[in-house]
Each structure stands twice: as C-alpha cells, then as structure tokens.
C-alpha cells in the first residue's frame, strides 16, 4: 500500500467519525442527506460482497466491515431522527440509481467465458457500486446549497470525503506507473466523483474557511 491510498483511506475513515460525531453530539441530523447516506450504504453492500469470497488482507476486511456497519448505523440514526424533517432532501435518486445500474450491466469487468455465474454478478454489482459512489454525493450537495445554517462539522465531513477522492486519484497514478495496476472503470468514475467535489470545495472555501477566526 502506498502513502496516497493510506491517506485516502484514513480521510475516508475520518469522514465517518466526523458524521457520527455530528449526529451523536448535536443530537440532530439537520443538514445530513438521508438519500446520500442510503446510497453510500448501497454502494458498500454491493461492492463488499467479496468480503466473503476474496480475502485480501485484514486491513481490507476490517475496513469493509466498518464501512458497511457505520453507514448502516448512520442511515438508521438519520432515518429515525425526529428532529429532522429533511424537507430539502429532494434529490430524485432514481435518476442516479437506474442509470448506474444500466451502465453497470453493459460496462463492467465480467468474463463470461470463465468464472461462475455468481462471480460475474458480483462484477456487475462492483461496477454498479463504482458508478453509484461517483454520484451519491449529489443529494447532499443539493442540500448544502439550499440550507443556510449548515454546521461546520457537516462541511468538514464533506471535505474529508473530497480529500479521500483526491488521494485515490494520486494512488491510481502511482499504481499505474509502478505496478501496472489499472481499473479504467474505477479511474474514470473516480475522476467524475472528484470533479463533483470541486464544486463543494468552492462552497467550503467561501462558507467555512473564510469565516474561520484568525
């Protein structure tokens, strides 16, 4: 594992703790998009089905289990939060899920000539999870643009997700150069996803960093 991927993973991990801290300490899920969190849960469940059949390392196994468990818990907390009407969580997620699923059926890493039926279904679900992750932040972005009183911790949560994406891009450059490791589906989707965060970072700069006490 190179430093770029490790920093990316740690930033991803930090994003979970930031969101959990916001939910637990403010006792409010205001400003948190249930739709984005439900999409992330879908992403992790679809992608980490290989948890059961492909052991890579304890690091990977534990991170996968944590990502699924933490996102499930976050979805549960936000969904059952009584103090959050989430009237602004209005993104039409079917416009994200259906195209991602259709694209995954046609553009994936399946090899029907070999491997079992179930392994190829897992490849389709892997591609689906990659495409869905790329756009899963859109409901949250829409909420941030509509809400006036977004808490800083929600913004820091988004920033850590953006840092995670940026470092994964560096990781892929490194791995392509030094290892020949190259998953074009993940890389293209990762670039799209990182570009979506560029929009957020402009907002972050204006609303958080410019307001920091000197």
């Amino acid at each position: 594992m190179n430093i770029f991927r490790f920093v990316g993973d740690m930033s991803h991990l930090a994003s979970f703790f930031l969101l959990l801290a916001k939910l637990i300490y403010t006792k409010s899920s205001t400003g948190v998009s249930l739709k984005t969190q439900a999409l992330y849960l879908t992403v992790f469940v679809c992608r980490y089905l290989d948890l059961l059949v492909a052991f890579v390392s304890w690091y990977n196994e534990l991170m996968k289990i944590f990502f699924i468990a933490a996102s499930a818990y976050i979805v549960y907390v936000v969904a059952t939060s009584t103090r959050n009407s989430n009237a602004s969580d209005t993104y039409r997620v079917e416009f994200l899920v259906i195209p991602a699923l259709v694209l995954a059926c046609f553009v994936n890493e399946t090899h029907w000539s070999k491997g079992g039926w179930s392994l190829n279904v897992m490849e389709i679900l892997w591609a689906f999870s990659i495409y869905l992750e790329a756009v899963a932040v859109l409901p949250q972005l829409k909420m941030l643009h509509q809400l006036e009183d977004t808490t800083n911790i929600t913004m820091h949560y988004m920033a850590s997700l953006g840092i995670y994406r940026a470092f994964y891009l560096l990781n892929w450059v490194y791995r392509l150069y030094y290892e020949g490791y190259w998953h074009p589906i993940a890389v293209v989707a990762g670039i799209v996803q990182t570009l979506l965060y560029a929009d957020f970072f402009i907002l972050y700069y204006q609303s958080v960093l410019l307001r920091l006490p000197s």
């Binding site: 991927r5 993973d9 991803h12 290989d50 492909a54 890579v56 390392s57 990977n60 991170m63 996968k64 990502f67 890493e109 090899h111 892997w126 994964y168 990781n171 020949g180 490791y181 190259w182 998953h183 993940a186």
Partner: peptide, 10 residues
C-alpha cells in the same frame, strides 16, 4: 491472466 488485476482497494 485476467484483463484486470485483482481488486484490492476499498
């Protein structure tokens, strides 16, 4: 060998 190397990322 498969077209793509094994997926070992998160």
């Amino acid at each position: 060998a498969s077209l793509a190397p094994a997926k070992d990322e998160l």
